[in-house]
Design a protein around this nucleic acid. Structure first.
Length: 228
DNA sequence: CGCCAGGGCCTCA
DNA sequence: TGAGGCCATGGC
């Protein structure tokens, strides 16, 4: 296998050494705390957990994860984190529950669109689709763009698709690997072409980039004090 | 007070 | 295709 950007795999190893396994995607426990599953990433998710990941991916769009968590907690406390219960909510009821996540009217609409795609048969009917086909279906939903689709693919459907977020772009820009006009797919390709096709690496790498990004790439100018 | 958070859509070139 | 405006709460 070719590794045109060895620096990408080198960065992964450095981040893993620095921060350790991240256990993404986090899930709510019964006490309403977000749990990162560092030692049981391989365990199969329940349908409700798959749904929680999908809704979390939409709720956290351009939004602090704490705010998205508060919205998910509202849904959980009201027993709405299941396909059947969530589909019974009106868009206005949904918007009220997810209010702390911000953009709540837009996101309520986006979530309704997503639930409509999944339909009555739930996630099972999608699991045999190729990652290409499922990605296209997700992108056809109004409210699901590249990053949200890849989060859902990777973490909810366990399909290999690298997630690129704002931190990823900032970190690679600082490393002179991309420029301001490198688009999403181009950044994603840099990772895909540089890494072995290992879903555990994909899951961990995105979590590690976020951990690193939160520490050094929040304030401008980005990357001040980054030791890597 | 201002800035921004684990984006995406629409409009207009 | 891509730049700019818009969506909104909560933390700091």
């Amino acid at each position: 296998m070719n590794h045109p950007h060895n620096i990408i795999f080198e960065l992964y190893k450095k981040l893993l050494f620095e921060y350790g396994p991240q256990g993404w995607w986090p899930l709510l426990n019964d006490s309403g705390e977000m749990i990162y599953r560092k030692n049981q990433l391989q365990r199969k998710l329940s349908a409700n957990q798959q749904l929680e990941i999908c809704l979390g991916a939409i709720l956290t769009q351009n939004t602090n994860w704490k705010n998205a968590t508060a919205a998910l907690r509202n849904l959980a406390e009201n027993k709405k984190l299941s396909m059947s219960a969530s589909k019974k909510l009106s868009q206005a009821q949904l918007a009220e529950l997810i209010r702390p996540a911000g953009y709540y009217n837009q996101k309520a609409s986006y979530i309704k669109n997503f639930l409509e795609l999944i339909g009555e048969n739930g996630f099972r009917s999608f699991e045999e689709l190729s990652v290409i086909k499922l990605r296209k279906k997700l992108l056809s939903v109004k409210g699901i763009g590249n990053e949200t689709a890849d989060c859902i693919l990777l973490y909810a459907f366990n399909k290999i698709s690298f997630v690129v977020d704002a931190y990823t772009t900032r970190i690679l820009t600082k490393m002179d690997q991309i420029s301001g006009k490198t688009n999403y797919i181009q950044v994603q390709n840099i990772f895909t072409e540089s890494l072995e096709r290992d879903i555990t690496i994909y899951k961990e790498y995105h979590g590690l980039l976020v951990a690193h990004g939160k520490k050094y790439y929040q304030k401008k100018p980005y990357g001040i004090g980054d030791p890597l």
